[in-house]
Design a protein around this nucleic acid. Structure first.
Length: 486
DNA sequence: GTGGTTTTATC
DNA sequence: ATAAAACCA
C-alpha cells in the first residue's frame, strides 16, 4: 500500500536531493512530493540576501528544478511572506504533511513557528529536521551543562557526541499529476541585468548539487593532501571552495565530512589534513551556535567593551578598501578577487578584514555588509562571526594586538606574488621581492615594471607603522572607557 | 659591530 | 601576529 496523499517539501537553505532529511521524510512511503521554494522578502526580521548570493540562488534553483523534473516532481516557485504562501500551496496541493529542515536564525524560527501553527490549523502535520548542521544549535553543552564560549571548548564538547557521518541517498521521488501555479524564476530578477556584473561569477562557479559533488571530488583528489598547511596559501589549490555550496545546502556538512574522512581512512590523503577540514567545518558549527545564542550577531558586539570603541568614519578609505585601491597589494588582490569572482581565499579574508578594522579603524559592520553583498557564500552565521573574530569583539576573538602586517602576510603566504599578479595586473611585472611593497621600488625598477606609483597603482592610503600605533592606542582608549563606565 | 635567531611584550 | 629587545657566534 502506498500513501497517495502528497507531502510538501519546503526547500530553503538545503537545495539538494541527497542527504536531505526533510525531503526523505516527505517522500516516505512513496507518496507524491510537491517541492516549494519561497522567495520571502516580506516577513519581519529576515535579512535580504546580497547581490552575489542572489545570483547564486538563481543558478541553484535552476539546477534543483531540473533535478526534480527528472523525477517528475515540480518545483513550485512563489514569492511572498512564508506564512501566507506555504499554507496556500499546501492547501492547493491537498498536502497533509509539510517537511522542512530547520534554520538557525531567530527571525527564521519565528516565521517557521507561524507557518507551523497555520498549517496545523488547516489539518496539516509539520515535520522539522536537522539538515544544515552537524549539531542542533543550542544542543552543544559543556560537561558542566553551560554554553561553550570558545571555539575549542565548543569543538571539544561537540565531538564528545560526534554524530555518525552517514549521509543518506536521495530518496526515490514521485510527483503529482497536476501542476500547481508557479512563478517564473526570471521574474524574480535574482540575476543582474543592467549592468550585468556577473560575468566573473559565471566564469568562476557552477551552482547546483551536481557541481557541488564535482568540486568536492576535485578537492579530495587534489587539494586535500597538504590542506592543513596549504589552506593558508592563496596562490595554491589547497582549499575546498565548497563554501557557497554549503551556504545553500547543495552539499550537506555531513556529506563533505564523510567524504573527507573516508579519503583519510582510505589513505588517499593524510588523516591530519582530513581532521583539519573537519575542524573548519566545526568553525561553521560554532558560528551557528553563536547565531543561535545571539540572533543579532551581525549588529551587536559580542564583547560589550567594544561598544565604546572609537571607530572612524571615512567614506574615502572605505571606498578604497572596497575597490581594492588601498596601495597594499595583498589587500587589493583580495578585494578584487571578491569583486570579480564573488569569493575570496580565507587567509586573504583575514588580511583584508584586519586591514579594515585595524589599519583603517572602520567599523567591522562596514566590512561585514560589503562581504554580505559581494560573497556568493555570504552566510548569516559565518560572516558576522568571522568579522567579529577579526575585529576582536567576538566570542573567542583574536587578541587585539594581532595586527596583520600586509607586507609580511603577503610575503609569507604569496611568496612568489602569483596571487597578486593575477588580481592586480598592473603590478604583474614587479619582481617578487618588491611585489608586496611597490613603494620601496626605485625609479628604475618601477619604470621597468611599467608601474607609475600614484597613477597606475596607488601609494598606500595609510602608513603601516603609524596605523598600527593608532590601532593600539584606540584599543587602550576603549579599555579605559570601559573601566570608567564600569 | 654585524647578521641572524630567540625571547618578550603587547592585553 | 608583530616588532622590539636580547642574545649569540
Amino acid at each position: 500500500m502506498t500513501d497517495t496523499t502528497p507531502a510538501l517539501m519546503w526547500f530553503r537553505d538545503d537545495l539538494r536531493l541527497s542527504d536531505n532529511p526533510a525531503l526523505t521524510a516527505a517522500a516516505q512511503g512513496g507518496r507524491p512530493v510537491i517541492a516549494l521554494y519561497v522567495l520571502d522578502e516580506d516577513s519581519a526580521g529576515l535579512r535580504d540576501m546580497g547581490g552575489a548570493a542572489r545570483w547564486w540562488l538563481a543558478g541553484s534553483l535552476r539546477a534543483l528544478g531540473a533535478a526534480l523534473a527528472r523525477s517528475k516532481v515540480q518545483l513550485v516557485l512563489r514569492q511572498g511572506p512564508a506564512a501566507r504562501v506555504v499554507p496556500e500551496v499546501a492547501r492547493a496541493a491537498g498536502c497533509e504533511v509539510v517537511a522542512f529542515n530547520r534554520r538557525a536564525g531567530r527571525a527564521e524560527a519565528r516565521v517557521d513557528d507561524e507557518v507551523e501553527a497555520l498549517l496545523e490549523k488547516q489539518g496539516c502535520a509539520v515535520e522539522r529536521h536537522l539538515g544544515q548542521l552537524l549539531h542542533q544549535p543550542g544542543s552543544v553543552r559543556t560537561q558542566a551543562g553551560g554554553m561553550p564560549r570558545t571555539f575549542s571548548a565548543f569543538q571539544r564538547s561537540a565531538l564528545r557526541d560526534r554524530p555518525a557521518p552517514l549521509p543518506q541517498r536521495a530518496p526515490s521521488l514521485t510527483g503529482l499529476k497536476t501542476r500547481l501555479e508557479s512563478e517564473d524564476l526570471d521574474s524574480w530578477q535574482l540575476e543582474p541585468s543592467k549592468p550585468d556584473w556577473a560575468g566573473g561569477l559565471r566564469e568562476s562557479w557552477k551552482p547546483g548539487e551536481a557541481a557541488a559533488h564535482e568540486v568536492m571530488s576535485d578537492f579530495i583528489d587534489g587539494g586535500l593532501s597538504g590542506y592543513a598547511e596549504g589552506r593558508d596559501r592563496p596562490d595554491q589549490i589547497h582549499v575546498s571552495r565548497l563554501s557557497p555550496y554549503l551556504r545553500f545546502g547543495e552539499i550537506s556538512p555531513r556529506q563533505a565530512l564523510a567524504a573527507v574522512l573516508h579519503a583519510g581512512e582510505a589513505g588517499t590523503a593524510p588523516m591530519a589534513d582530513a581532521r583539519k577540514f573537519e575542524s573548519e567545518l566545526y568553525w561553521r558549527e560554532f558560528s551557528y551556535h553563536l547565531l543561535h545564542a545571539v540572533p543579532d550577531l551581525a549588529r551587536r558586539n559580542l564583547q560589550a567593551n567594544f561598544d565604546a570603541f572609537p571607530w572612524r568614519e571615512c567614506s574615502g578609505d572605505l571606498k578604497a578598501w572596497r575597490r581594492g585601491l588601498t596601495g597594499y597589494p595583498i589587500v587589493d588582490a583580495g578585494m578584487r578577487q571578491l569583486w570579480q569572482t564573488g569569493w575570496m581565499h580565507n587567509r586573504v579574508r583575514m588580511i583584508v578584514a584586519s586591514f579594515l578594522c585595524k589599519h583603517l579603524l572602520l567599523h567591522w559592520t562596514e566590512g561585514e555588509s560589503w562581504f554580505w553583498d559581494t560573497l556568493v557564500d555570504a552566510d548569516p552565521a559565518n560572516n558576522p562571526a568571522s568579522w567579529q573574530w577579526v575585529a576582536g569583539s567576538g566570542a573567542d576573538a583574536a587578541p587585539y594586538f594581532r595586527i596583520f602586517n600586509p607586507v609580511l602576510q603577503g610575503e609569507k603566504f604569496d611568496p612568489k606574488g602569483d596571487y597578486v599578479r593575477t588580481y592586480v595586473p598592473e603590478l604583474a611585472h614587479l619582481p617578487r621581492n618588491l611585489i608586496h611593497k611597490p613603494w620601496e621600488a626605485g625609479g628604475l625598477e618601477l619604470a621597468q615594471a611599467g608601474v607609475r606609483l600614484g597613477i597606475t597603482y596607488p601609494r598606500p592610503i595609510v602608513d603601516h607603522a603609524a596605523a598600527r600605533d593608532r590601532a593600539l592606542r584606540a584599543f587602550e582608549h576603549t579599555r579605559k572607557d570601559t573601566r570608567a563606565a564600569g
